[in-house]
Amino acid sequence: MALLSFNNVFKVYREGDHPVYAVRGVNFTISSGEFVAVMGASGSGKSTILNILGLLDRPTTGTYKLEDIDVSSLDDDEMSEIRCRRIGIVFQSFNLFAQFSVVENVCTPMRYAHVPPAIMRARAEELLGKLGMSHRLSHRPTQLSGGERQRVAIARALSNDPPLILADEPTGNLDEKTGEEVIRILTTLVEGGRTVVMVTHNPAYEEIVDRVIRLHDGEIVEDRPGGRGGRRA
């Protein structure tokens, strides 16, 4: 079942009088429960696609449908609402709030979803427990290791139980072993029915995802099953 689709999506910026094409006529459909790696060199359009997927940006032309809704034409509040409840984003540099505790960080998206405080706290603790962070609930992000911070960031992305997780180089700031641990968590999420779209430079991850979309100069040059896809098939 298709979770989202890009139909002839273009993203054009203007530099003076010259149009700069960040994304050129991209088409793809991603199903529920798929683990997709978006790969490509710097400037190939990976981040732009991730921004559009995360409703942080809009296509210049073309349509982006998420759960059969054309989200490219929504207003800012509606996009924020979908971003809050249907999409979880994991950043390369974690982007945790240093002034708040681990639990408070995980609670933040739930606050924007108007979840009652008691439920919010219980859910945050449950998620952190599942990710092995129960012993760090009241710690500040600065007191955690890189791997622990990314686990908190994943817990935060999952807090409103979204079907789509977007991960922007989630292992980029981690050592190999910790990176593998994070990938393992993402794989578990996929196994639980969520869709994960991960931007990465690391070719090793081609083997553990269902599908690899490779971009070059704003166009898809390769869209093939990954190693996990092959194994699943």
Binding site: S80, R83, C84, I89, F91, N95, Y112, N160
Partner: peptide, 11 residues
């Protein structure tokens, strides 16, 4: 980051 996590402009 807050906007990415779902905060509206008014939040």
């Amino acid at each position: 980051t807050r906007r990415a996590l779902g905060a509206r402009k008014r939040d």
